[in-house]
Amino acid sequence: MEVTDLLIRLLSAPSVTPDDAGLMEFVQEYLPGYEIIRLDEGGVKNLFMYRKFGEGEHLCFAGHVDVVPPGEGWRSDPFTPRIEKGVITARGAQDMKSGVAAFVEAMKRAERFNGTLSLLLTSDEEGDATYGTRIMLAHLRQIGLLPDYAIVAEPTCEERFGDAIKIGRRGSINGVIEKRGRQGHAAYPEKAVNPIHKVSQVLPHMAGVNLDEGDEFFAPSQFVITDIRAGMEVTNVTPGKLKMMFNVRNNTHTDLKDVEEFVHRYFSGMDYDLKLSQSAKPFVTDPDTRVVRVLDRAIAEVTGLAPKHSTAGGTSDARFFAEYGVKVVEFGVRNDTIHAPNERVPIDEVEGLYRVFRRVIEAF
């Protein structure tokens, strides 16, 4: 089977999170000669396959088989791949079954490797990720099989295939502020405490403000207000409470405590509650790390491009590898139609990604 045929097989499975639609069993059968570890929990399927070729270091390819719901606006069945003018259209074409097909096929054809070669697949990356890659890595640590390096085949390229890899990701801090006031009649503002008026005084100092200056790898951490609501949708009652939600995509210079102190600086003296949670922590892999250097060289050999090193975008399962000390990098096809109707990927990008991963395996 060629890599394009393999991708079409993967795309034909309606594996909406957390359903793997039988893909874990298919991959197990498709890769003979690899040891198998399954860890299924909470309705999530997780698969780890490895083969020890030699005594060298351990390289893991990682990804997810689950996809987001198709939604509306498709010109064809989202789980019946359509090929037209060298482009495949189906849900998951870019995010990220193209990446899975590329590294599975590269691993199938690997005849030698100076160390251990493995893959980690989950069906819970697009969801809460509670029972996915995170718990498999915890298990691998317990049994002494954590990889030294990992390549997550998320779609990373921007304008051209080969133009960008991700050597890190920003974290994500979510916050909810509840400002209490005193409800009253709009005609008697002196008898009420209007939380909207109070909060509006500090918004110019908070909304869109950078909490740090960033660095060579990261953009500044910005305080982004995502929702403000108060009142009963009437004009003659001042509200008794205001709720404001925000998000900070933080780099390594700003943490949870910094965000808490920032909020308190402007809400000090007000009657308010603050709830903070961190769904992802920031990380960066040194560009001089072996996995980055080998991947850079393989991309240049296949595409003729020197990829930029990026940390932009949202979160991915790479963050879980980083938490366990694994040197991780991400590389995949372009990401211009991910999660959109008529998601599509050019066949030449899929074949190029497969060739890059073959070269990485051969050169590592």
Rank of each mutant, 00 (worst) to 15 (best):
H197P: 05
V328D: 07
N247F: 00
G325S: 02
D288V: 13
P287H: 04
I228C: 03
L146E: 12
R293G: 08
E57V: 14
V87E: 03
E330A: 06
D163P: 07
R358W: 08
K108G: 04
R344N: 15
N114S: 09
R51M: 15
G175A: 06
A230Q: 03
I299E: 08
G127Y: 07
N251G: 11
A138L: 12
A93K: 03
F321R: 13
F223E: 02
E154P: 05
E105H: 13
A138H: 08
G71Q: 14
E343Y: 11
V263F: 14
E362I: 02
E2M: 03
V360E: 02
P195W: 05
F331D: 13
T130G: 06
E213V: 01
I225G: 00
I173M: 00
Y34M: 13
R265Y: 06
V360D: 04
L59T: 14
F26D: 05
R319E: 00
H185P: 04
N247T: 01
G56Y: 12
L276N: 08
G115T: 01
T80N: 07
R358K: 10
Q183H: 01
I165E: 02
P195G: 09
A230G: 06
N174W: 10
P14A: 09
G314H: 03
A207Y: 10
H264K: 09
F113R: 14
K275Q: 06
G63V: 10
E154M: 02
G313T: 02
R82Q: 12
G42W: 14
F283K: 01
A93S: 12
Q201V: 15
M245E: 09
D77M: 14
A153Q: 08
V152L: 08
A21R: 07
E351C: 06
V328M: 12
L353G: 07
V199Y: 13
Q94V: 08
D215N: 08
F218G: 01
D95R: 03
P189Y: 00
T289M: 15
R169S: 08
D66M: 12
V224M: 05
R182Y: 15
L140E: 14
S12G: 10
Q183P: 00
I361C: 07
G162Y: 09
N174Y: 13
S279Y: 05
L295I: 11
V291P: 01
H309D: 00
I177K: 01
R160F: 11
N247Q: 07
G240R: 08
E126P: 07
T238V: 12
A280K: 11
V3E: 01
V292E: 12
T116K: 11
T80G: 10
V193G: 07
E301Y: 07
R358Y: 08
R293D: 06
L31F: 09
Q278P: 07
R38V: 07
F161G: 03
N194V: 06
K308V: 10
F331H: 11
E105N: 15
F79D: 05
R112K: 13
F320K: 07
D148A: 00
M96V: 05
L211F: 04
E57F: 13
F53V: 13
L7D: 01
I361M: 06
R169I: 00
A187P: 09
V68L: 09
V284N: 00
V44E: 11
A129P: 05
R344M: 10
Q183S: 00
A102D: 12
E55Q: 11
E323N: 13
T156N: 04
I173E: 00
E154T: 06
L137A: 08
D128C: 06
P239K: 04
A150K: 08
V284E: 01
